[in-house]
Structure formats: C-alpha cells, structure tokens
C-alpha cells in the first residue's frame, strides 16, 4: 500500500531544476567574497535541501563501472537496458521473469525525498521516484517460510569495465531481513527528480533503504529471491569486520578505519563543514525493527 510513509521533507524541498543549477554558482560567488560565515549559516538551515541533479549523477559508487567517484558517470553509459527483466524466485507464490512494467502494474508511484548516507561518511539528499518494495513483494506473494530477501545486480562484462577488471566478486549481491524489506520506507526506485533513473545511479530499478549505508541500496536489479536464510551480501563477504550485514547508519559504531559520528553533506564546496550523523540516518521509525538487538554486535 503506497503512501504509508510521510516525509518531513516536502515538495517545497525539491529545488526547481532551474534553481539547482545556479545554487552552486551562488555559493561559489559567496565564497569568493569571503562570506564564509553567512554561507555556513544558510546551509545549516537548508540542510534538507535535495542535492542537485549534477551532484547526484556525477558522484557515485558503482564498482561495475570503476572505483573512482566520477567513473560511473563516465562509464555507465555502456549499461544495456534493453529488454530488462527481473527474475523473481524462491519462496514466492508467483515466481517468474517480470518486466518492470509487469512488476509495478497497478502500484502507486511516489516521490520520496530521502537522506542518503554513504558508509564513507558523505551524505546527500535525493528526491527518488519509485514504489514501495512491500507492494511489489505482496504482488508476487511472499510465502510463509520466507525470512529474508536477496537482490542481485546485472552483470554485463562487455559493458562493465569494473567486471572485466574483476574488482569484486560479481554479481553484486545484497539482502534484507523480510521485515526491513516490508517497511514502508524501503523502496524500489526507478527515477530521480522525476526523470528515469540515470545509469550511474542504478538504472533501470534499484533498492533504496534510507536508514542503512548506501551500499545496501543495490543498483540495477535483475533478481529478487525470497529465502529462509540470511543472504550473501557482497561487502559483508569481502570484509565482515568493516561491513556488517545490517549496516544501519549508526554514529555510535565507527567503521574500523574512520569515524561514523559525523558526515559531510555533498554540495558545500571546499569549506563544507561536517554535520552530526543521526541514528538510523534520522529515520527513528525503524527503531522498532531492532528492539532488543545489540546494534554494536549486529552492526
């Protein structure tokens, strides 16, 4: 059921396209005049302003297209989206191969402005378009024994330079507990700013779990599996000490190599100040999912 979650960020927070291109210039100008203090204060107030299209689409982690932040924007153009289908299997009533149109038929598309927090301690605010994952899962029918959902990213070696280099053990895989997957905040996004999902951001369809570190929000999904065990998760398998299965945003639990207590909101330029990272990235409504769990042990 759509509209189960209401944002504290409203449509008024979506910067019009004409404005978001000029915002950075205004800031650059302000910096040039040495009006540092004023800019800092202005940012604190509009801290929940979505990032610009340019920022969102040119600073990405997408290992299939290279390790640098600007690599996905350069290389993801090669991603082949033709005849995109998603395999839905495991403990479901209606397994099969679905197009995105089939999978989302009759569902309500929503815009959700979410905070996005990368495990690398930077953050953005992104206006996603998409569907509640719960609606999609209910449509395919989750069977009684299912406890987890597993996701898989496309592997196109001819089109993906990172796959050819063997940067990770591809396909990239991620997973959620079923109750996390069914939470109204969890969405399958197909667009940003009302535009179709850019390739570097995970076209044509990706997961968005705003209270977890960004790498949980798997891109360019080709497979969704309902299962009765905790699924394989790529970064967790590479280095479990650094990347837990849960990976909830948690300022109390540092990454072994850096602090998670603060973050840098992208868009502030060379003198951007750090801001405090919020528990569950500010989405306290998910706390109930983890009641009684030790979140230091289950990071």
């Amino acid at each position: 059921m759509a509209h189960r979650w209401k944002s504290d960020l409203t449509a008024a927070n979506v910067t019009p396209q004409s404005m978001f291109l000029s915002r950075r210039q205004i800031m650059a100008g302000a910096l040039g005049l040495g009006a540092l203090g004023a800019v800092g204060a202005a940012r604190a107030q509009d801290a929940l302003q979505p990032n610009t299209w340019e920022e969102i689409t040119s600073y990405n982690n997408y290992s299939e297209f290279g390790a640098g932040k600007d690599d996905p924007a350069k290389n993801a153009g090669a991603l082949d989206l033709t005849d995109w289908v998603i395999e839905v299997d495991g403990l479901v009533d209606n397994p099969g191969t679905y197009t995105i149109a089939d999978l989302t038929a009759g569902l309500t598309e929503e815009e959700r402005i979410y905070r996005f927090r990368c495990v690398e301690a930077w953050a953005m605010v992104i206006p996603w378009n998409g569907f509640e994952l719960a609606d999609i899962l209910n449509a395919v029918g989750v069977q009684a024994g299912a406890t987890h959902v597993a996701f898989e990213t496309a592997v196109q070696p001819d089109n993906m330079i990172g796959v050819r280099r063997g940067a990770l053990d591809f396909p990239y895989r991620e997973g959620l507990r079923l109750d996390e997957a069914m939470h109204p905040l969890t969405m399958m996004a197909t667009g940003i700013y009302g535009e179709p999902m850019p390739k570097q951001n995970g076209a044509p369809i990706r997961l968005v779990v705003p209270w977890k570190y960004g790498f949980k929000s798997i891109k360019s999904i080709v497979r969704i599996t309902l299962t009765d065990e905790q699924p394989y998760a790529t970064w967790n398998a590479i280095n479990a000490r650094e990347y837990g299965f849960y990976s909830n945003v948690n300022p109390q639990v540092d990454h072994p190599r850096w602090s998670q207590g603060t973050e840098r909101l992208i868009g502030g330029g060379l003198f951007a100040s750090r801001q405090d990272t919020l528990m569950f990235n500010g989405y306290d409504e998910v706390a109930g999912l983890y009641e009684g769990m030790d979140l230091v042990a289950n990071y």
């Binding site: 340019e54 600073y59 840098r264 330029g269 060379l270």
Partner: peptide
Amino acid sequence: QSGRYLVEP
C-alpha cells in the same frame, strides 16, 4: 569545483 573537484572537492 572544476574538473575532478566538481562535486566533492
């Protein structure tokens, strides 16, 4: 913020 410094300088 030009070139490689575009988004996160």
